[in-house]
Amino acid sequence: MAQTFDRPEIQTPENLVYSKTTCLTDNVMHYCPGCGHGTAHRLVAEVIEEMGIQSETIGVAPVGCSVLAYNYFNFDVQQAAHGRAPAVATAIKRLLPEKYVFTYQGDGDLAAIGTAETIHACNRGENIVIVFINNGIYGMTGGQMAPTTLPGMPTSTSPYGRDVETMGNPLKITEIVAMLPGTHFVTRQAVHTPAAVRKTKKSLRMAFENQKLNKGLSFVEILSNCNSGWKLSPVKANKWMVDNMFPFYELGDLKVNGEMINKD
């Protein structure tokens, strides 16, 4: 029998430093190996567990890869029509103002078909959290070009790369909502390294704390890989994201406590 390198003497409850959160169910996620959706789901669930608001949280799932989020979150989740998650979340929050309401949306849902709902919910300053997963591609339907696809990035509908002349420019929706007066906290984070994951979790915690204090809308963009859509291995996809996506979509807070952060 092969050597196992186990240390049973330290596998005791008092030495436990990390385990799967109880706010995620035991269902195995359907996401591709290495997909950032799994990490983002886990971070949202961990923040909700840490704040002790599992029974008071209502999530709104989008259409896209994360349409089945209700199978994985161990709290109430409502599935919304394509792009309409901020509108559904608005209704839930207004009818049940004591509940914590968040939407979890991909770039096809939030930045394409749901642009109007997103911008108007942000402009009204609804007291919700929007978690936006940006991987620059329509992952679920087979890697087609999305509004967030980078210039020159090959996808199945732009096989020679996105040509800005004919296909238009990428949409930086996070910069747009940061300029609206209704948003209170707007940030862009990533989930490719342990340090980035920890920063993303802090941002999500801040977003939910803002909702607790009725501060207004918090918008957390999470840059994620789509290794199947990008046709790369998970580790190479993360490196491609660092080399190509980060120069265009700069990480960091855009708006904190209702004040724009000047990066210059």
């Binding site: 390198f5 430093v17 990390y18 385990s19 799967k20 996620m29 990490t39 989930v191 342990p194 994951v197």
Partner: peptide, 26 residues
Amino acid sequence: KVNADCIGCSNCAVVCPDAVITVYRA
């Protein structure tokens, strides 16, 4: 695991998309 050099930093568990890893440290 291929050796016993783990220091329980929990980096592996933090980046795992499927919450596969449980970490102990002493």
